[in-house]
């Protein structure tokens, strides 16, 4: 067997990966202030609108999914 990749087994790699990720998020927010906007809706011009909308949507999305799961979840052999 070929040798395995293990890069994400090391905690420091994961930490470094996350740091780069967080850094790029910060960079995105900074650059947003200097960009020429041509918006159809007024709120599109607010700096960080898309970041906030994306973040809040995804958090809400996961909590709503958790709520729906309480109602629709069944055992795997439910239909058998």
């Amino acid at each position: 067997m070929k040798k395995e990749l293990k890069i994400f087994d090391k905690p420091e790699t994961v930490t470094r990966f996350l740091l780069v990720f967080y850094g790029s998020l910060l960079g995105l927010l900074m650059v947003d202030f200097f960009i020429q906007k041509h918006a159809d809706f007024p709120w599109e011009e607010v700096p960080g609108f898309f970041a906030a909308y994306g973040f809040i949507s995804c958090v809400a999305f996961i909590f709503i999914a958790k709520g729906i799961r309480l109602i629709v979840k069944r055992k795997e052999d439910y239909y058998d």
Partner: peptide
């Protein structure tokens, strides 16, 4: 810029 923010901050939530 808008799309990158939407996706990456969604990824941040994840």
């Amino acid at each position: 810029m808008g799309q990158l923010q939407l996706l990456l901050f969604g990824a941040l939530a994840f």
